[in-house]
């Protein structure tokens, strides 16, 4: 066994090298991909009630692909992501529903955030993050791509870039 020491050292080195060079060490595959998105219905934040009603969520008969975006006012990447989502919402609002889920947050802070970025896509309030856990979230922001039939196509953890967001929308409209 000792004779093969270079093999052992290289194996260990290879393992750690691979571990070091991973672009996103903490990335976790979602077990929901390919499965129906968990349905829920939560109270909408105040600014959206006039247009969308008291509650909103994922349920059968939406008839539209959904980008479910889990966010919080205290999350820094959410601040760069919010205007981007807003822009895409304006562009695609007839084809795709962008639905925000505000988690682990106080309602007042969430409302301030919405006002600050002028967000018109609807967001529901999930102060304790219960729906987040239903979806298996492990950080904010996180985006679930759900097709017309209500199947989860992908989960994106972390901030979305414009190209990534466009990619997901194209994928879901295909």
């Amino acid at each position: 066994m000792l004779r093969f020491w270079p093999v052992w050292v290289l194996l260990l080195g290879g393992l750690f090298y691979w571990g070091l060079q991973r672009p996103n060490k903490d990335e976790l595959q979602s077990v929901l991909v390919g499965k129906p998105a968990p349905s829920f219905s939560l109270p909408l934040l105040a600014p959206y009630r006039a247009q969308y009603g008291a509650e909103m969520g994922i349920q059968e008969g939406l008839g539209k692909p959904v980008l479910l975006n889990i966010w919080a006012s205290w999350c820094i990447p959410c601040r760069t992501e919010a205007p981007l989502l807003e822009r895409f919402h304006q562009q695609y609002k007839d084809q795709v529903l962008i639905l925000g889920v505000n988690v682990q947050d106080s309602e007042a802070e969430a409302l301030k955030f919405i006002q600050q970025y002028g967000l018109t896509f609807p967001s529901v309030y999930d102060g304790r993050g219960r729906i987040g856990i239903e979806y298996g979230y492990y950080g904010v922001p996180e985006t679930f791509v759900i097709d017309r039939k209500g199947t989860v196509l992908a989960r994106h953890a972390g901030e979305l870039s414009e190209a990534q967001l466009r990619g997901y929308i194209e994928q879901v409209l295909r």
């Binding site: 000792l2 004779r3 020491w5 270079p6 052992w8 050292v9 260990l12 080195g13 750690f16 090298y17 070091l20």
Partner: peptide, 24 residues
Amino acid sequence: VGAWFLVFLLGVMAVGLGLLARVS
């Protein structure tokens, strides 16, 4: 720093085990 320590770790193991393989 991680990569530096990795090289050092492999170096230590290579020196120790290599010498031992030679003299065993």
